[in-house]
Amino acid sequence: MMSKKEMKRKAKEAKAEMKRRNDAEYDGLSFKEKLKKRFSKEKVHRFLFGSKEKDGFLKMFAIYALLICIGFVYIYPLLYMVSTSFMNRDDLLDSSVKWLPSSFYLQNYIDAAKSMDFWVSLGKGFLIAGLPTICNIFICMFVGYGFARYDFRFKKFFMVILIFSYILPRQVTMIPTYVLYNNMKILGTIWSFVLPALFGNGLNAPIFILIFYQFFRQIPKVLIEAAALDGAGHFKTFYRIAVPSAIPAIITVLLFSFVWYWNESYLTELYVQGLSGKSIWTNLVVQLKNFDTSFTSKTATGDTATSLSESVRMAATTLSILPLLLIYFVLQRHFVESIDRSGITGE
């Protein structure tokens, strides 16, 4: 048995030998000839256009250039937003200041946070996004398992309804649902988001059900039969075998559901806020939507140091994105790999 060190040494020796041999080829040649030999036509061609095994330099260069350019375009609005949010009034007017503000001016953030009621909205936003998400995970997992595991009558029909409920715009059912919530007295409370989620009809729930459906179909049937032979009932099989194996799918659903609920302002305003103005529920995105009016009223009462300007608005935008951005950078690996592992693209 060769030790690792020995192997390394051998590899080094072989490399040196190769080099010696290569150098020997060039021995006795003039500099020009050496150059010619080293950069022969085929070699250059292979370097630029690639061979069967390796991609050429030109192709890689084009790919990197495109990716970097488009990537810059992608981040451009964010960079613009952040840089503008630190500018004070003079910087905004000064045309020589383009990207870097002359000083690190934080007053915009302080004022924006005050106007948006940042900490309260943040906490409520977490609740508004978090509770329905948890319901979504459990119920969609349950329903998805039912669709994947059992062959009952009208299954295809129900699947069609599932897809139909995704394609149908929310606006059609919005008005009667609003009336329904109003009659149930849950309008303007968080229940108007939690209740549909509890019955598998939360925001984008069809997608999540389909994700779980795809995932559970990949579980070998033998595994479930084995559990049944060992005396596990239907529910026990579900939570002892299906649920633990579905963790990648759960992470996917968790992330997407949270993000989608967080970014939803239309329905939040309609149901959770109830449009009556009396509700205590709000989140950052809704606050951002009504930012101009609330900021102007704050200015009128003299609560803020600056008046409404581009940089304050950008500061508010940054603040409303910031929590998700932080979560994203911490969990980015899960975000990006989630769809691969959960097999959303199975069919």
């Binding site: 119920i139 349950f142 329903v143 398992y145 039912g146 669709f147 595991r149 059992y150 062959d151 009952f152 009558r153 299954k155 129900f158 309804i161 599932l162 409920s165 149908l168 059912t173 649902t177 329904l180 549909p196 509890l198 019955f199 598998g200 009809n201 059900i209 239907h234 579900f238």
Partner: peptide
């Protein structure tokens, strides 16, 4: 197979009530 209905019942109720 009938157990399948048990599993999708919550969703079915939701579809009835909210869709």
């Amino acid at each position: 197979a009938r157990m399948g209905y048990v599993f999708i019942t919550p969703w079915l109720l939701g579809v009835l009530a909210f869709l």
